[in-house]
Each structure stands twice: as C-alpha cells, then as structure tokens.
Design a protein around this nucleic acid. Sequence first.
DNA 1: CTGGGTGGAT
DNA 2: ATCCACC
Length: 730
Amino acid sequence: MTSGAQRLAFHSLHSLQLSHPVSTHCNLQNGAKTQDHQPQLNTTFRNTNSRCIHIVYENKTPSLKSLPLGIRQKSLLATCNYPARRLGVKKLMSIASALAICPDLVIVDGEDLTPFRDVSKRLYALLRSYSWNDRVERLGLDEVWMDHSWFCLDNKDPEKGFAFNARGFAGQVYGREKVGLEGSGTGGYGGGQAGLLRTKLLLASHLALHLRLKIEEEGYTTACGISTNKLLAKLVGNVNKPRNQTTLLSFGPDDGEETIQRFMGSHQLRKVPGIGGKTAAALSDYFISQSKPGSSSPPNPKEITVDDLLSCPNLSPSKLDSLLSSLSFSSGTGTGIGKHIVSLLHGHDSSPVKPARLLPTQISIEDTYFSCPLVTIEQIQRELVKITGSLLKRMKTDLMDDDKKRWLARPKTLRLTTRPRTDPREGRGYGYGRVSKSQGLPGYVFTIAGSNSHGNAHGDDEIIQRLVAETLLPMFRELNPLNPRKGEKGYSIGLLNVCVTNMDSVDPTTGGGGSGGRGRDIKNMFMRAREFTVYDPEHEHADNTGIQPETEAEPLDNLDAEDLSQDPDLNLDMSDTSYESSIGKARGSAEDNNNDNGDPSTTNHQQQHPVSNIHEQAQAQADRDTNHLGPIMSTNHYYFHIEDDDEVWDDSPDNVWNHDEEEEAAEEEEATEEDLDYDDLRDAEGLGVNGDSDGGDGIKCPLCNHFIPLFALSAHERFHSMEFEGELDA
DNA sequence: CTGGGTGGAT
DNA sequence: ATCCACC
C-alpha cells in the first residue's frame, strides 16, 4: 500500500451486491479429508468425479427437512439437491443417506448461528474496506449490495487500482452487446449514453471480480450480479450461481429496456425481490381471473411470470392498488403500492444502497416450543433465563467495543414477545397470535456487565436472574394472564422472544484512543460523522446534477494494453465471454455474443413484449423527473450482487471458475507524482455536509468537457494521453 | 414452518 | 407500541 499508485480512478457510481451464502460444506475428494469444521459461506466444492458436495447440520431428526432454516432452506437443502437428484431422489435426503454417500460428511450444529455471524462480519468488513462512501448494505447474513460511487483499493490512496483487460466483461454476461453503432474501443457504443453505460458496467464487472477474488482468498466463494440497480443486480446474480458473476448488459439504443424487460419478464412473480408471498399470490389470482376461461389448463399460480402478468390488458397501478388493498401493508388507498409493483415488474428500482450501519437496530433472541409448549411458570422462567443469557452475550459482542470495555450503544427498550401454542392445523402465519410488551431496559444491565471486564459469568448471572425475575416475568404475566375461572391451570406457550431495541448511541467523540488499524479509523470517522448528519434523500439527485462521473472510468478502457502482471497474488480472471467477440469487432456480427449467456431460461424466445402503456407512462414520467437533473441520472447506479448457491451445481464450463489462461492482470504499481493531498480530499468528502462522496471539488475537463473530481484528474489526463491507442480497437 | 433482522403504516 | 410483510 505504500508504493506508488496506479492511476485508476473509480468514480462512476457503482454498486455491488455481494452475497456469501451461508453454508458449510465438506469436500469429498475421492475420500480425501473433509474440510475443517469452520463454517464456510457459500463454498461448494466439486471433486474430480463431479460429485458435488455438502453441508449438513446436526439435528435431532435424521431428515434434512427438519434442519434449522434460513440456513437450511437456502443453502443446505438446495445444496443437497445435486447428489439427491443424481440418485434419482426427489428433493430431500436423510442424513443417513447423505452419510452413506459421503462417509466423511461433517455434521455441524446448525442451530447456533454464531460462527456464521462471525464469518459474515468478517467478509462484510472486507467489502466495506473497498468503499469510500460506506454504501454497503447488508441483507441478512449473506447478501451485500455495494454502491461503488467511490470504490477504492486503499483508503490512503484513492488512485490505487488494478489493471485488467477492459476489452471484455469480467465473468458472464446476460444479454448481448449490440454492435454497429458509431464509435470505437467501447464495444461499438461510442461516447454516447450507451457507451458510457457500457463502460461503467464493464468497469463494475471488473471491480466485482476483484472483490470476489479477495473473498476467495478468504476461503469463500460468491456469485455476483452487476447491474444498474439493486433489484436487477440481485436478480441477475442468480444467473450464474454459485460461483460466477453476471453483468446485465442493459445498454443500447433503447437504454437497455428491451434487455431488462426480457430479463424481468421470464421471472416468476415470487422471484422478484419485493414481491413476497402474499403479493405474489394476489397477483397470480388476478392473472388467473383475467385469463381466458376457454384456454387450456389452469396455470399453476406459482409459475406465473412477470410477462404473464404484464399481458393483462387492464393492468394499471391503481388496479394493483385495489388488488393489493387487502394486504395489510398497503393499508387502504394511495400508498402507491401499485405503482411500486409496476416498477418492480419492469426492473426499475430507485432505492439507494443504504449506508453501512454501525450498530444493529435491535437484537432479539427467540425460541420456539412447538412440539413441547411451556406450561409451568418454572419452565417459562428457565427458558427466559436461557434466552436472556444469550441475549446478553449478543449485546456484548455487538454493542461493545472490541475490548469489551465500553458500550457503543445502549438499548433503551426491552421487549418480550410470546405466542400461545397454536393448533398445528390453523393459525398459519408465522406471526400469528404473537403478542408483545415493551418496557424500559434497566440500566444495571450495562453498569454491572460493562464494568466487569471479561467474562465474569457471575456478574452476568446476577443480571440475568434479576432481569428475568424483576422485569421479564412480570411482563410475561401481563401478556398471558391465567384465567382460573376458565379452569386454566397452566400456560401453553409456543414461542418466547426477548428483544432489546431503541439503541442509544454512546457519544462517539468521547471515545478517544482509536487504535484499530489503518483504514478502520477513517471508516469510523465517517460513520461517526454521519451520526450527526441528517441524511438528505435529495442528495441522490443532487448527486447527478452537475457531475458526470462517467469519465474517470474511461481511462480503464485503455489500460489493458499497459503493463499487466507484476503481482502474482492478483489473479484477475477474465472468464471471458464477450471478449472474443467484442475485441476489435465493433462492427462485427451481432450474433457473436449470442451464446455467452449462461441463463437457459431467459434467452430463448426473443419474444418482444410490447411495452405496456403503464410502462411508457412510467418511463415518460421518469424521464421528466430526471431531465432537469441531467440525462445521466437514470443510469447512474451500478450494482453488484453476489448471491448464494441454492441452485444445483452446474457443471457447464461456463460455470466453472477459470483461473488460468487469458489475461492475467496484476496490481499495477506505478509511482505517482501526485501533489494532491488525498487525505484532505477524502476527509472533505467523507465529512461533508451529507457525509457522502458526491459533489466534491473538481474541474471541467477542457478536452472533453466532463466534470472530473480532483482526485481523478491525473487519471483523466492519462486517459486523454492514451486516447490514440484506443483507436487500435476500431 | 425457523430464526433472525429490517422497515412501513397505523 | 403493535402489527405486518419482507429477506
């Protein structure tokens, strides 16, 4: 990090969703040793016999079906699909059979999520360290979006970069490049919007690969989606699971709408993020009610696609509003839910990548007693003690500083939730019958536990006992009054949940010291600064008014010809697809790229779906909305999304990680004679009014008229000096 | 058919 | 504070 910097400036707005699915695995390499018991996030191995392999979590019952979920359903069960199918088994495999096939199978307790949380935290921290603006949004333990407005390799040196072959996209792509437009060296897109978009996505794909390789160094594999918004990034990340990345090629004369719609259209409604079970069901019902009674067989509600729904002639946002009004979250009228759904169906999503959160907003622990409901108050108390114990532990790991000396935040509220055991046959909903009660969280929880430096279990025990006896138990009784008149002799509790929330941040400015390491301090500064800053949703727009962040990406286009490969550590894989056909073929056949699309389900029919009126209106409105902000606006965000491996492993060559061959790029260490003071710059950015990285200083380049932020100036200069070489591609 | 979380609407 | 939906 101390050596000179490569002059790459990553300035276009990029966003990346990474996810590292939670799953442990063992590798049965011809009877080789199993992997260690360390939890692995999304690590699926295959051995030379193409037998793929798996994770198992321990459980009382021998069926994978009863394993803890979240983990189970997404990773474990799905991961087991592969051998199960091989064996001709339908879906589930018992642990016994798994062991029969894989004698070395490691059985892990899947109920304790701590190891997974730890890994998740580690990888999350890693990803965060590559972002200047800390727009790194987590979804659960295993998914992350990143907004790479200011991607960086080194917090101390914003120009540090890596070299790569910019002639092609890293990883896989969805859709194909449209060629034949004017311009050169940009895949045929010239310098217009399509070209800029392509350049940004291209860059994004390489950034994503870079991050994924870093994560692989940590021992975890990832899938990733790269697109212009969170929704698309998440979805397109599924295309080449579990261990590759996919960029949605959503550029072209039509702004990529056609590609986007084709992509979106083939998805089942439920697969669209933001459309959950209830919504999908309502929408499916509507479609079925609209479909011709004469037509053949009634469609399976689960298989209805976005295209199907959009084909309904009378579909409109207000129609959807009323359609979904019965859903409680769209209370009554005018919540705009219909509009929202419509935009989702078209792959539009303006939600920003949220800044990384310093602290959780709540911590809760719950346990269910489905098969064995709690009856006596003693049982209740016992369980409450257990739960409170783990809650206190969680509070310490999540809310205290690393030394466990100081609370970073104190929850003000304590909430107890209970649910009576419901008849297995009814009361479907997960939240059914839940009742809760909140109260202030007594201060002694912190004072005693906080001052008792390490693991003074005794002190903790006192706290726990006291909390249960003085607070939780009374709360419980209020929630579940026994009614003697009805002859109730005991409780019947199927669920207990204890939650602390309403975090009260401890003043960060008083916490001097700040040991930590390297960029961490800066990160913390940023976060702390933000705490005193009002988040301004408008800045997303303000962002794009005067600034055209595209230009900085362009130098990258020309760097591939430069010095690659000094550093053996960096193994940039261009698992190339579009490379062959895009290189020097700006006017080549459009079909060249047609087969590099890894998605079997969405490529086949070219069926052009007529864009609905709604869509046109929405788009027109969007255009109006953004025009005054500058035309770039609507395509300014790029997202990566790394997804998990809940799909069956695919042996196809496209899905295999190719480390060898093709271009190997290397960290380019190039001395820089920069006279800018980066630290000052960065601080200015980071601690600015909105705590974000937009807006900052810069100049308009006299050569190309693009706004160039100061830190990217030298890179931009170099871009112009290299412009001629770019012509080689033409 | 579970364990966390988050966020919105009331 | 409570519910509900979502991941």
